[in-house]
Every structure is written in structure tokens, then in C-alpha cells.
């Protein structure tokens, strides 16, 4: 379906060209890493570096995060559809400037992790990025093929309607029980770019970081709240967790709610104002005493 060899060659060729004519200072991509078992981030800074770049079926890393680190420099990034949603999100929130970034849009039909389709990928709506400067299609050409995506992820709203509060609490507790509060999920997340995270603030002892249930609950719920309408479903949090915590359903459930109630989807339009940064005087009275009832739940 996807010719990774041709995509790799095309990517190297593109990166070499961009670096040698000084269009960009750095190309963000991935290189082989036999120890880890899948390709890991690589920053190509010289035209001869470009040869190390690869593109494979298991290069599932979201590189958007690294763009904030090379801020101010001209950077090109090899990006899948989900990475591009993250980049758009960062542009919309004034973390990146569009003019500095050259997006090399890689066509993608889902990435493999541990020999199966990464669980984030089954929710992916499109094989093609919605914003790009240079296209590298499935066959290495420049015309996207618009491959069919599995799109078989669970509908969290449906799930919530058909479960009881206790069942939902069970699922949540089972996940956070595994958590060791290492905050790898936060570090890997494109949306978590705060200089000092609320959980790290020293001035107010809101949270004491000893892995008790109350702290874990407060951390994960607040993080989910902060990512409401901003999560781009890239699955980086889940891929990076050393304990196998998977709370993506919370983020997904909120995305569904935001889309349904406020008609907003993260990572679609770099010009859009984030959903919690604006209001409308005729917003529904969802969740209010005597107001419009919350759908199903």
C-alpha cells in the first residue's frame, strides 16, 4: 500500500535540497535505531546528514514537539497527518510561526507499534495532512493517493452512554493505578508546552507529588481538562508511558463533546481561536442546574 523505500528516498532528496540551498537550517525527521526497535528523532543540519533520514512503517514519533525547541530557526519537518494537526494547533496558539516551518507532508496509512497498528492510528480520519508545503505521497510521488483509513476507534460518547458511573470509575481507576507520576505523557504531548506545569509549581502546594490516588487523579483530570479541544489524537502520551497507562479515551471523549457542542475540532485551521478562548452568548446551558441536559450521560 505504501512504498516506504520510495518515500525514504524522496525524503532524503527533499531534505538534501532544502539544506543545501539554505531554505532551512534543520530538517526534523527520524533515523534508524535498532536498540529501541523503531526509528527515533533525528535533526539533520547539514546536507550530508540527510542520508541518515528514514521513513518506515513504525516511525510513529510525533515530531511536532521538537519544533518549539528550534523556534526562531527555519525548520523543515517530515510530518504525518497527526503531526500536522499538532503543528496547526501550535500555530493557532502562537507557539510557532507558520513562516518558519516547511512541512513535508508524508502520506501515512497508520503506523505500527509492537507489530500491530498503533492504537492511536485507528482513530485517524485521513491519510493526507491538511496543511503542507511539500507532498510525499504513498508511492513517493507528489500527488497524494488519499488512502482509505481504518477509522475503527471506539466512540467514547457511545461507550459512556451504555455504561454506569461505577463502570466508568472502574476504568479510570484501573488506568491511574498504573501511573507512577513520571510525567512522560506531559513531556511527550504537543499541547503541554507550559514553561512550568501546574503540578510542578512550588509557590502553592496544590499537589504533593507522592504517588497517591488523589494526586494522580488531580494530575490526569486537570491535564485532560487543559487538553479539551486541543488534543489532536496523536497518541504520543500513550506510546511513551513506561507503565502502560492509557487515558486517551478521556481526551477523545472531550474532543467528541467539543465537536458536537461547539462545532470545533483541534488541528484543522491555523487561524482558528481555540475553543476555550472564546464564547458565544447563546452557548447551550449544558451541565447547568435546570439547563439543557447533557446528552445521554
Amino acid at each position: 500500500m505504501i512504498d516506504y523505500e520510495k518515500q525514504s528516498l524522496k525524503l532524503i532528496e527533499t531534505a538534501e535540497k532544502l539544506l543545501s540551498d539554505n531554505t532551512v537550517d534543520v530538517v526534523l525527521g527520524v533515523k534508524d535505531n535498532p536498540e529501541v526497535g523503531w526509528p527515533t528523532p533525528y535533526f539533520a543540519r547539514k546536507p550530508e546528514d540527510a542520508k541518515k533520514l528514514v521513513w518506515t512503517e513504525d516511525c510513529h514519533v510525533n515530531l511536532a514537539n521538537y519544533l518549539t525547541e528550534v523556534k526562531g530557526k527555519k525548520a523543515a519537518i517530515a510530518a504525518k497527518a497527526c503531526d500536522v494537526r499538532s503543528i496547526i494547533n501550535l500555530i493557532a496558539e502562537n507557539q510557532l510561526s507558520r513562516g518558519d516551518i516547511t512541512i513535508i507532508g508524508m502520506e501515512c496509512a497508520g503506523k505500527m507499534q509492537n507489530e500491530k497498528l498503533a492504537s492511536a492510528c485507528d482513530a485517524c480520519p485521513a491519510s493526507v495532512p491538511n496543511l503542507y508545503d511539500i507532498a510525499i505521497a504513498a508511492d513517493g510521488s507528489e500527488t497524494y493517493k488519499n488512502l482509505e483509513m481504518p477509522n475503527s476507534s471506539e466512540n467514547v460518547t457511545e461507550w459512556a452512554i451504555h455504561t454506569t458511573v461505577e463502570e466508568r470509575l472502574d476504568r479510570f481507576m484501573k488506568e491511574i493505578d498504573k501511573c507512577i507520576l513520571c510525567f512522560a505523557c506531559r513531556q511527550a504531548c504537543q499541547g503541554c508546552y507550559c514553561v512550568t506545569c501546574f503540578i510542578d509549581r512550588k509557590a502553592t502546594p496544590w499537589e504533593q507529588v507522592d504517588a497517591d490516588t488523589a494526586t494522580k487523579m488531580a494530575f490526569h483530570l486537570t491535564r485532560a481538562m487543559h487538553l479539551a479541544g486541543r488534543c489532536t489524537d496523536c497518541g504520543a502520551c500513550e506510546k511513551v508511558c513506561p507503565s502502560g497507562v492509557n487515558l486517551k479515551y478521556l481526551f477523545k471523549g472531550l474532543s467528541e463533546f467539543v465537536e458536537e457542542t461547539y462545532d470545533f475540532k483541534a488541528g484543522m485551521d491555523p487561524e482558528a481561536t481555540p475553543v476555550l478562548d472564546r464564547y458565544s452568548s447563546d452557548d447551550k446551558q449544558v451541565a447547568f442546574l435546570g439547563g439543557d441536559s447533557i446528552v445521554g450521560i
Binding site: 528523532p41 535533526f43 513520571c182 512522560a184 511513551v240
Partner: peptide
């Protein structure tokens, strides 16, 4: 260190890493 995301997984899995913090709650 350019690929580092600061997740600390390396130190949590390391058999010899032993740094700790004391907290009063």
C-alpha cells in the same frame, strides 16, 4: 541530547539511579 523530551523514563528504569527527594505532606 537533542532527542530528549525530559520524560525521565531512563532514570526510572535504571538499576543504579538512586536520586530522591524528601517531601512533607
Amino acid at each position: 541530547a537533542e532527542g530528549c523530551i525530559g520524560c525521565g523514563t531512563c532514570t526510572y528504569l535504571c538499576p543504579t539511579c538512586h536520586c530522591f527527594n524528601l517531601r512533607d505532606a
